[in-house]
């Protein structure tokens, strides 16, 4: 059985008195343990709502989400699901609870009532995993954006999650900060953590094993990056190809097929084959 399973999920947002918005429409999909998935779509496509549905912050209006067989709507299991499905948000300044970094990382483990020694060893481990051990006694407000997001990831890792969701966690970072965060995420995925990266950067999406594209709350495209980029359907979802894939598509239209191109390396590979 897949690790995450969505069955005909609908989610209706109450906007204000009398008005509501269908954010997710009849969505069914499944994600296996250990996958690295990019979830994308233009603003308002429902991707952030989906993220909050996955860890039980929102409950489906109808349909069902199973996390390792447990429904996210199960009131008794909601904290268990939140512990197993960690989430990092967009704004680095709005998710730190504590002034001092190690205190912030300890927040989750404290909330679930772990014994003190366990908390300390988990904080050590989580800070080491994101390369922030030497900053543990520092103030969070003095860090760069990329460092703040790494601390936020450490706060999630200290809960030993099965799934790591990044809700546009790199959108406010400079290129350096983005690279820092993405390499930490990549390493976690190699250690077996399922990663769901919500982003509208196609370069970032290309790093995933699988891209899921939402359009107006519905599943629009789902497949490996090469498939998604060659499907020709991205534009209708308000998205663009990453530059390398765009160039490959244009060359293909001129009669030069480079094969599957998702990023710069595969473009160069394809070109070199043609030149030989």
């Amino acid at each position: 059985m897949p690790f995450i399973q969505l069955k005909n999920v609908n989610y209706v947002y109450p906007v204000r008195e009398g008005a509501s918005l269908k954010a997710i429409k009849n969505l069914s999909l499944s994600i296996e343990a250990g996958e690295y998935v990019a979830l994308t779509g233009m603003n308002g496509s429902g991707k952030s709502t989906l993220a909050k549905l996955l860890n039980g912050l929102f409950k489906p209006t109808s349909g069902e989400i199973l996390m390792d067989g447990v429904s996210t709507a199960d009131e008794d299991k909601v904290f268990d699901i939140r512990r197993r499905v960690g989430m990092v948000f967009q704004n680095p300044d709005n998710q730190t609870v504590a002034t001092i970094i190690e205190d912030d990382v300890a927040f989750g483990p404290e909330n679930i009532g772990l014994p003190r020694d366990e908390i300390i060893s988990r904080v050590d481990e989580a800070l080491a995993a994101v390369g922030m051990s030497e900053y543990r006694k520092r103030q969070a407000s003095a860090l760069s954006g990329g460092q703040k997001q790494r601390v936020a990831i450490a706060g999630v890792l200290a809960m030993r999650p099965d799934v790591l969701i990044l809700d546009e966690a790199t959108a406010m970072l400079d290129p350096e900060g983005r690279d820092e965060v993405l390499s930490v995420v990549k390493r976690q995925n190699q250690n077996g953590v399922t990663v769901i990266n919500i982003t509208h950067s196609m370069q970032e999406a290309a790093m995933a094993d699988r891209i899921i594209v939402l359009r107006k709350g519905r599943l629009a495209i789902d497949g490996a990056p090469a498939q998604v980029f060659s499907s020709g359907a991205l534009r209708s979802c308000g998205l663009t190809l990453p530059p390398a894939a765009q160039l490959a598509a244009e060359l293909k239209a001129e009669g030069f097929d480079l094969g599957a191109v998702t990023d710069e390396a595969s473009l160069v590979e394809g070109l070199c084959k043609l030149f030989k």
């Binding site: 530059p243 390398a244 765009q246 160039l247 244009e250 060359l251 001129e254 030069f256 710069e264 390396a265 473009l267 160069v268 070109l271 070199c272 030149f275």
Partner: peptide, 29 residues
Amino acid sequence: ARICDMLAERGVSLPRDIITMDELKSALL
């Protein structure tokens, strides 16, 4: 420009002053 550098390493040399994808496309074509 980055793609040009990667190609140069593989022995495909393109003009050094390519900086946009359209320029790259014409050079490649």
